[in-house]
Amino acid sequence: MAAGTGSGSTVSAIFSPVRLWLLLPSWIVIGFFLLVPVLLMLTYSFLTKEFRGGVIWEFSLASYDQFLFDRGLFGDEAPVVKWTYINIFIRSILQAIGATIFCLLIGFPTAYFIATRPIQSRTIWLFLITVPYWVNLLIRTVSMKFLIRDSGPLNELLLYIGLIDAPLHVINTNFAVQLGLFYSYLPFMVLPIYASVERYNFTFSEVASDLYASKVTILWEVILPVVKPGIIAGSILVFVPSLGAFLAPDLLGGAKTFMIGSLIEDQFKGNAGNWPFGAAASMILLSLVLVVLMFYVRAQNKDQT
């Protein structure tokens, strides 16, 4: 995220007088086609729904009300807290946390291993980790579905070896979604951790070892605190897209694994067709993400001072 902010010797008197003209196209394009739409979406979340999609331009808190409360079939009973949507959000957060932990468990050792290779082979390892990220996420998720389905190659292999007697039922479970999210965003965890382990000065480890610290102690007490910024960055890069993921829950999960992404999609493309409610759910998702990002920026600033 810091790329492009700090500059010292790279300032030139030639382009700084026209910087406004150079920056203007990006401001206009992103401002008009993304910032304005997001603000419009905020407005939509306070409008009245029109059936079959679209809105009536009348102020209403109905969407947020629908999100939180149940007022009976005709909307005239006393409001009771409704857990349907809150649970979808909680489940999404838990799924995203689970995916982050899985990625961390595999990603940290991988990043550490790569960072301690000789410089020439590091780039090759890193390249191998990055390539899958650039492969279409849809294709990757479909591949995962193909692999883990009931009569898929994974089950056949396990049956063949004799490790299991009956096919494991993984698809359409929470675990399948978890696996899909983990698989989708694993490279995001490895790269930032790699970057911080690479800068880690191994003299610290040597000093600790001279003071009779065990290797596990060195890892926990010396290395981890130093590479913490990389771990936090990686966790956020996995957590944020997992939270709003649509493909993994939709293709690998079933009705019971509904996540925020599917809920939002259903309001616009699916049967629900309630635009203001979809806009409200999107706003809540966006706010969650902004809170996480703000936490990240604060943590980063604290580390720097």
């Binding site: 997001v38 999609e265 635009w275 993400v289």
Partner: peptide, 14 residues
């Protein structure tokens, strides 16, 4: 920074 699905919703509405 904006989740992709939010961008999608906002763009459709816009």
């Amino acid at each position: 920074m904006v989740p992709e699905i939010v961008t999608a919703v906002a763009t459709l509405i816009f």
